[in-house]
């Protein structure tokens, strides 16, 4: 793909993240590998609808240097670290889906609940060590948690997924969200002994626990 096509791919992925409800507003960030040395990332603090392909930023994977006047995402360090560590990875998405973010706030290690999840991600999904956005702690924690897997939870933050292609990265985001919802529903079922779970059931367990 040409640089222009890769920039368009990042822009389209941003719009798709919003449309699928996998992120809110300007939150989250996306990147695609250009070659062994460079990646294209989303800009900082700009929503995906307004963002133009030319607003995406080419960043050096080793040095994190860039030439654009537009500032790249502040989480570029995580993206670069994954590309450096994993030559087979071509796309990285950091997003904040509802149910997956819930698991991230509970700082769980979630087992693969479906065969698809096992194939796409690995045996389980770990939560990284907590760190403030853009810090070394967050970057190192994410790289450690995603080792040997294609996704991890970022404590109290969201998720990071990586895959050879953008399409596969999206597939992982969707499966992570479906499994995270199932994981929470299973916790409700275990308490109430029900087969189906409604929002009222979730609140029944919640009210018992915060009493």
């Amino acid at each position: 793909m040409t640089e222009l096509e890769l920039r368009q791919l990042v822009k389209d992925a941003g719009v798709a993240l919003l449309k699928e409800g996998l992120v809110q507003g300007t939150w989250g960030n996306i990147s695609v590998r250009m070659d062994d040395k460079k990646m294209i990332v989303t800009p900082s603090g700009m929503d995906y609808i307004r963002m133009r392909p030319e607003d995406t930023v080419v960043v050096d994977i080793e040095t994190l240097e860039y030439e654009s006047e537009v500032k790249p995402t502040s989480e570029k360090k995580i993206h670069a670290a994954i590309y450096r560590d994993r030559p087979e990875i071509g796309a990285v998405i950091h997003s904040h889906p509802l149910w997956s973010s819930t698991c991230a706030a509970a700082r769980v290690t979630m087992p693969a609940l479906t065969e698809k999840m096992r194939e796409l991600v690995g045996e389980d999904v770990r939560t990284s060590a907590y760190g403030l956005p853009s810090t070394k702690t967050l970057t190192e924690g994410a790289v450690e948690a995603i080792k040997g897997r294609n996704a991890c939870f970022l404590a109290n933050h969201g998720i990071i997924v990586c895959a050879p292609t953008m399409e596969e990265a999206f597939e992982i985001c969707r499966e992570m969200e479906a499994c995270s919802k199932l994981y929470i529903e299973n916790a409700v079922k275990a308490v109430l002994g029900k087969e189906e779970v409604t929002i009222d059931d979730i609140f029944e367990v919640f009210y018992r626990k915060v009493k």
Binding site: W99, A106, V108, Y130, N156, I184, A187, I202, F203, V210
Partner: peptide, 14 residues
Amino acid sequence: ALTYVGSTVLGNSV
């Protein structure tokens, strides 16, 4: 809100 409720249900709302 969902995160607070869900993580409490999972037993570890941080």
